[in-house]
Design a binder for these strands. Structure first.
Lengths: 235, 235
DNA sequence: TCACATTTGTTCGTATGTATC
DNA sequence: CGATACATACGAACAAATGTG
């Protein structure tokens, strides 16, 4: 049973996405929403607070809330968006090739990062992302195997996140990312279409489940001339 | 008069910063906190919710909340941190030189970005950031003049944000950032200590006040070999 | 395995404060 | 100044998750 305030949020977002609610509109007052949803003010406020945090609406004491143009604030990377979601949203001509899919056997290093004993199994996946017929991104993923069920090579060629969230019901919470600019490694040179003098923009991500469990480490290595990263920062 | 729930938050953060509350500790239950603060459960919960959002604590139904190690989540850039705050926090050997401080007179371009008429005045500031005796960052700022009071060259050499927030009471809300990797411009070559083959990592920021007013545009151009950007992303 | 106490999550009702028009 | 709208605060009840005996 989804709580009532979440239903209000979902209903708003659905209307927003279908352009039934437009940027610039003023929302009904909290009192009116109480009647509309047959609920208490507390419930309405909880929903509106979340919508304000997500920049769907703007609140201001003494005035009705107004609807914002969220397209201006919608950012792919800092919202943990999978490559597949990005491709779909941007309508990109893209494809994925899985070049490695196996249990890690040596690397001390990666065990230290996960901070798990050697008895844990860690899966390594390397994928090449091709956009407009150029191999531009090299994604190296490491997963703790116990969380990823029957993830296989076919799924990895599509959307891993779609599988983890919808099939396994995994709840991905947040990620810590670090961006640096580096010289290409041998692996980069082997798999990517690199021009002379191009560097690699590397996004290192540590992704956590809702109980603060680190379950994925990713290195997303982009050809620097094609690299663009969007961020949304709050003071 | 600061509301009671904010006092609870501030008190917690103070204790946390002073190591009176340590990561791994369990918090008192909401019932106990009610007695401790002589307030209602609603008030306690509002405070705890904010602390959970900011990753100070972890909540979980049926269990007491636990205190997190926030150092792991503390990120400079994606929180809109000024260079001065960063220098202080990281204890860097750094200095700033203001090389330009004047009203923009030509640039059509920047007026379009701000989306204001030519009658508005826009201030341009260029600053060089030197770290460990190397000129590594070039910051170009554009401000809408009407918001920045008597900001002068001396203040610009120190902390502009400190002045805007504490002296003028400006409420900075959020920023949209884009990171790209580019070849150095003439300006970069002129002002920065660049090695051969180094590229520039450019952070373009649009900073907004609490009423969604765009008041600052910044280009922070970093020598790519010294560039590091931290981000925190939520799903 | 089950029942129970504890703890957080959701919802309602009500009252008062503060900002805007 | 009064009406309206959002912000804060209190009290109460029940639901859902967790740990324990």
């Amino acid at each position: 049973m989804t709580p009532k305030y979440k239903k209000i949020i979902d209903s708003f977002i659905k209307d927003y996405d279908n352009n039934n609610i437009l940027p610039g509109d003023t929302l009904p007052s909290e009192n009116e929403l109480m009647k509309e949803w047959n609920c208490s003010r507390d419930t309405v406020r909880k929903a509106m607070t979340v919508l304000a945090e997500r920049k769907y609406i703007q609140k201001s004491q003494g005035q009705k809330s107004t609807v914002l143009n969220r397209k201006e604030y919608e950012f792919p990377v800092s919202r943990i968006t999978s490559f597949q979601e990005l491709v779909k949203k941007r309508n990109l001509n893209a494809s994925t090739e899985v070049v490695k899919f196996e249990i890690v056997n040596k690397s001390h290093y990666i065990y230290n990062l996960f901070n798990v004993p050697k008895s844990e199994k860690i899966l390594e996946i390397i994928r090449i992302r091709e956009i407009d017929n150029e191999k531009i991104i090299l994604d190296k993923d490491f997963f703790l195997e116990k969380y990823i069920g029957n993830l296989n090579k076919e799924i990895a060629g599509g959307s891993i996140y779609e599988y983890l969230e919808n099939e396994l019901g995994l709840k991905i919470d947040f990620a810590k990312k670090t961006i640096t600019v580096e010289k290409p490694t041998k692996e980069d040179l082997k798999y990517l279409d690199l021009k002379k003098d191009t560097l690699i923009a590397n996004i290192e991500s540590f992704t956590y489940l809702e109980d603060n469990i680190l379950f994925q480490i990713t290195y997303s290595r982009h050809r620097s001339d094609k690299f663009k990263f969007f961020d949304f920062a709050q003071r």
